[in-house]
Nucleic acid binder design. Sequence first.
RNA 1: GUUUACAUAGCUCAGUUGGAUAGAGCGUUUCCCUCCGAAGGAAAAGGCCAUCAGUUCGAAUCUGAUUGUAAACACCA
Length: 563
Amino acid sequence: MVIETIKELFNKVGSRLGYGEINIITSNRPELCDYQSDDCFRLAKIHHKSPLMIGEEIVEEIKKDENFSLYFSEVSSVAPGFINITLSSTFINKMLERMNNEEKFGIKKTEKVETFVLDYGGPNIAKPLHVGHMRTAIVGESIKRIINYMGHKTIADVHLGDFGLQIGQVIYGIRERNIALEDLTLDDLSEIYPIMSGRCKEDEEIKEECARITKELQEGSTEYLDYYKKIHELSKGDIKRIYDYLDVHFDYWYGEMDARDYIPKVEEVLNSKNLLIDSEGAKVIDVSDEADTKEIPPLIFRKSNGAYLYGSTDMGTLYQREVDFNPDYILYITDLRQSLHFKQVFRASLKSGITNAKLEHLGYGTINGLDGKPYKTRSGHTPKLDDLFKDVEQIFISKKEDNKDMSESDRKKIVNAILKFADLQNSREKDYIFDINKFSSVVGKTGPYILYTYLRINKILKNENIIHNLSNNVYNEEDRKLRLKLLDLEKNLTLAFKERKPHYLVDYIYQVALFTNTFYQNNHILGLEDEIKKNDWLYVLSLTSKVLEEMLKLIMIEIPEYM
RNA sequence: GUUUACAUAGCUCAGUUGGAUAGAGCGUUUCCCUCCGAAGGAAAAGGCCAUCAGUUCGAAUCUGAUUGUAAACACCA
């Protein structure tokens, strides 16, 4: 909104002088100016003049504009060729009022509403959710909310991992132990899966048997289907419970199994285009490209025993999504380590023409322990999410005496804030170190810091009324910085949307809280006798509060009653 | 081995796509509650942005090489 408005003015001047569009960015040197343009360097090359001269020309021209003094308090050309822009208080306040009054803080509406299918979560139904599952859920849900906020349509699908060898393994384990289906519990599942997974690696015969069960299940064996249904039911209930706790929600609870009916259709398409090749008894799709620097291996569509794999289910799912939703984009939020797989699937889908959607793999980094290796507890297991929630809650309660008396729902909100803020502030595609102490921290750059800031300013606002709009004043540096930061919302939100990286938004939220605290600490409001000043500050704080509240929703952080 | 990422303060991480003097949090050392919530604020110390070369007015950011780390690489997901 702000940059756009300034740019409009500069572009007008730019085209009048024959320079064309002039780019404006937020300042890198806030002590010198609010916004800046570095474009004179670029233009200098084209027009064979010094950057400084071009800057001076532009500045001179812009000063002639009738809106100049309304917008700016100062615009100057500085050696070696920057244009420094300082906004007028009037302009800052006009923009803030627009933010306050317009829907979604005046963020530009999308010209074309597009449909995004988001595939995240993807829990394996053979085992309980562990720490590793938190990232996809949180990152995926947040990306979904950001896309939604930008005005697009989203369809979230959990895409349960329920079709592969892991099911065969668990069924084998259940039968071996003679557990009656009606007695089967979640604990059984979490015990059986790792054991069977280990045994399959050591014992070729058991592995083959599990593979056979898997294949028969895929072919519709009613006997195994009963097992599948029971496992599915047990797991889904538990998964849902945990996702509910995290405030992560899906429009569809499809699984790989639901793609089963579509796989033959994909196979038909593949056959009609002669894309399925026999290779060592398996059916594969050649996905190599002439431009490849390195040979990329073919996608295995069907194993030599006739069973399907996750490449086939992914293609089946893709087909299904195309038919059901006709999406513009399909986003896969999974571990970065799967990038080769998705490259293969995307290419195979493109070749076969089963979808028109743009496909993006939004990989995220691995969660590592303090030693930099994939996270494990001391016993060698990956900790369950349930336990993590409990641990964080315990640590939080121990921080302050009266935390014990906090309501159940407030505690839950704070645990969520702690975890989500800790996770989402990391750049999406980097590995990160999971440190339980860092993840339970309540001081510094944390969820509680934001919540605390929010609650403090709302305590001021609670018994006060804002009677009129902003005056033309800005009163001091801290005040000014906060107002400018608020105006920066659109840029950061847009960036988070375009890059599909929530951490840009998280960082913005933190900055707002930071500037708010500085302002808060140094300026008392309630005792002010100057009614206009008081009203102005209440206005700014009220807008700050709204911005924080709305943006926190996009990262699934709710505000407790008291903390 | 091949390919792809990554390397920024003691630790954990940002760095808005090439701009001016490198940014946080934790930890360390000082201050600040008779005053809207101290889970806060103010300040200090801490950096050869892995190394070397190149591209250019300008490089943490782009290119190449080197070193190191991680991951993926045909019937697991």
